[in-house]
Nucleic acid binder design. Structure first.
Lengths: 158, 158
DNA sequence: CAATATTGTTAGCCAAGGCTAAACTGTTTG
DNA sequence: CAAACAGTTTAGCCTTGGCTAACAATATTG
C-alpha cells in the first residue's frame, strides 16, 4: 500500500500547507459526510413539513413540491418513505402530520437551521446568501461547532 | 394551490420565529443545495487526487479507496467518470494525473476547504471536529461567505 | 523466473432520488 | 349534480454512487 509508506517525507516534495491527515482520520471525514447525505434530505422534508404545519396549519404534497422545486410524484414517493420511517402519518389525499419522532426531528432541524442562519447574518453575510448557505450547511455542522456559533451570535447581539 | 393563499396570515396561528420565505426563494435554496450535491463528490475526488499528487507525487486508486473508505471498484468506476469529464487522465494500472481543468478544480476546492478549515479553527473549534465539519461544509459556502470567513480568520491571526 | 501478493478492472447487483405520463380522488362550480 | 379542475398516487424509466465477486495486470520476492 503506497499510502502507508513510512518514508513519505523523504520522497514527497515539501509543499506548503497542511500534510495529509492519517488515513483513518481522513476516511472518517468522508464517511461522516456520506452519512450526513443519507439523512439530510429526510431532515429537509421533515423540517419543511413542520414549518408548513406551524405556519399554515396543514402540509400538502403540492406545497412541498412547490417549495422544494420538485415534482409531485417525487414528493409522493418520499412521503411513502417518511411513512415507513414513522416520521409522518398520512391518509391518502389528506394533509400530512408528524409523528412524535417526526416532531422531534423537525424541531432539532429547525433549531440547527436557525442557529446557522443567525450566525451567518451575525458574521455579516447578506440575508439571501445566508439563507442559501444555511440550507446547505446545516447538516454538516457538528454540535460542537453549533454551540460555538450560537455563543458567537449572542455576543454580537448584546 | 394552498401555498399562494393571500389570506394566510388570517388563518395561520401566529408563531414565533421567521415566516416562511416566499415560494420562489425557498425553491431556490433547495435547488442550490441539490445542485451542489451533484458536483461535490466529483470535487472531493479531484481535490484528493490533487493532494495525493502534491504530497506523494502519485495518486493510485488504492490510496483513494483507502482514504475515502470506499471499495476499489467504486473508485475505478468514478475514475471513468472523471475521465469522461476530462478532469483526469489515466492509463490502466498507472497513477492518475489531473488535466488543466482538473488542476484548476483541485486548486479551487483546496482553497475553499482551507479557508473553511482555518475559519473554524479561528472560531475555536477543535481540530478533529473542524476537519470533519469543513469536509461537509465546503461545498455549501458561497463566495460571499467564503470571503467573510477569510477576513475573519486573518483578523484573528494578527 | 515462477509463485505470490497487491493493485486495478469488469460485470452485475442494489437503493435513492429525480423525472414524465397516466390514472384516480376530491372539491368547486355552472 | 355532473363536469371540470386541482391535487394525489402509481407505474415505469433514468442516473448516481455504493457494494461483492471474479478476473486481469503488475510488482515483489523466494
Amino acid at each position: 500500500m503506497t499510502d502507508s509508506n513510512p518514508n513519505a517525507s523523504l520522497t514527497a516534495p515539501s509543499i506548503p500547507g497542511d500534510a495529509l491527515p492519517p488515513v483513518e482520520q481522513h476516511a472518517q471525514q468522508y464517511a461522516t459526510v456520506r452519512n450526513a447525505h443519507e439523512t439530510e434530505l429526510i431532515e429537509d422534508y421533515v423540517e419543511l413539513i413542520g414549518d408548513l404545519l406551524a405556519h399554515r396549519g396543514e402540509a400538502r404534497a403540492a406545497d412541498i413540491a412547490n417549495r422544494m422545486a420538485v415534482s409531485q410524484a417525487t414528493v409522493s414517493k418520499m412521503i411513502r418513505r417518511l411513512n415507513e420511517l414513522e416520521l409522518v402519518t398520512s391518509k391518502p389525499y389528506r394533509s400530512l402530520f408528524l409523528t412524535e419522532a417526526g416532531q422531534k426531528m423537525a424541531e432539532t432541524s429547525r433549531a440547527r437551521h436557525d442557529i446557522v442562519l443567525h450566525f451567518l447574518r451575525a458574521l455579516g453575510v447578506r440575508d439571501a446568501t445566508a439563507r442559501i448557505d444555511a440550507e446547505g450547511m446545516e447538516h454538516h455542522v457538528s454540535d460542537e461547532t453549533l454551540a460555538i456559533m450560537q455563543r458567537f451570535t449572542e455576543q454580537r447581539q448584546n
